[in-house]
Computed example of a mutant assay.
Amino acid sequence: MPCLGTGDLHRIFENLDKNGDGQVSLEELKWLLEKIGVQPSVDELESAIGKLSLDFDEFLYFYNSILSGGTTGSGGLESPKGNEGDGDQEADLAEAFKVFDLNDDSFISCDELQSILSRLGLWDERSGRDCNSMIHAYDTNRDGRLDFEEFKRMMLITIS
């Protein structure tokens, strides 16, 4: 996932919380994950989260757990760990990269990032500038797109 600020995550949360009860259900969370190419079942989510809905703070924790590879298959969310499971973290980052690399050319362009942000309900005119700025901030070779190493650096900075 791209580096999303708390404001962006709050907008996502509010968009997901259709009935305005301050909770995002597993069905709503499943819908969001499917929009970005992840296909969990409700049972898998319940097993990983350990409850049927999340308030905003729990949603933030879930988001951070996904970024750090800290969800478990045996129930509940784990706190992010130090450098344990670096191989798993690399594999998780590679999977996340594939979600954004829509044309499978091994790069993430602004258009691809815009597409994912649109799926999440985060695209507006302001986001276009943010998209270019985000890519530019981590695009060390200045080619206007992110390769896997640049993406990995961005994600590791975000979750540390």
Rank of each mutant, 00 (worst) to 15 (best):
D17C: 09
E27R: 13
E95P: 00
E27L: 11
K98A: 13
E58I: 01
L117I: 04
Q114R: 13
E46V: 01
G75V: 04
N141D: 15
G5K: 09
H136N: 12
D8K: 11
R11D: 14
S109R: 02
G121R: 02
Y138Q: 01
E90G: 00
S115F: 05
L4R: 08
D130Q: 13
G22T: 06
T6D: 10
S133P: 00
D55V: 02
L4N: 04
F100H: 08
G144F: 04
F107V: 09
R126S: 13
E34H: 14
A91D: 14
A48H: 02
D17F: 04
S25N: 09
S65F: 01
S106A: 13
D147F: 04
E84C: 03
M154L: 14
S47R: 14
L9I: 03
P40S: 11
F151G: 02
S53T: 12
Q23R: 14
G128N: 13
N132V: 11
D55N: 14
T6I: 13
V38C: 11
L4F: 15
W123L: 15
Q89D: 05
D111S: 14
Y61F: 11
G22W: 03
E150L: 06
A137D: 15
D92T: 06
I135R: 00
I157S: 12
F56T: 03
A137K: 15
N132H: 15
G144T: 05
V38H: 13
K35M: 14
I159S: 12
G87K: 12
G7Q: 12
L4T: 04
P2D: 09
L67C: 08
L33P: 12
F59D: 03
E78G: 07
S79N: 07
Y61A: 08
L113K: 02
A94H: 12
G5A: 02
K81V: 05
K30M: 14
Y61I: 01
H136W: 01
D55L: 00
D139I: 08
D43G: 10
V99N: 10
K18V: 15
A48Q: 11
D88I: 05
C110M: 04
S109P: 03
D101P: 09
I36A: 07
Y61Q: 10
Q23V: 03
E44H: 10
T158F: 05
E112G: 04
S65E: 01
L120E: 03
D86F: 08
G69V: 01
I116M: 13
K98H: 12
S160T: 08
G69S: 06
E78W: 00
E78A: 14
F56V: 03
H136V: 01
I49G: 04
V24Q: 05
E125L: 12
D105M: 08
N141G: 05
E150T: 08
S74V: 08
K98D: 10
D147E: 10
T158E: 09
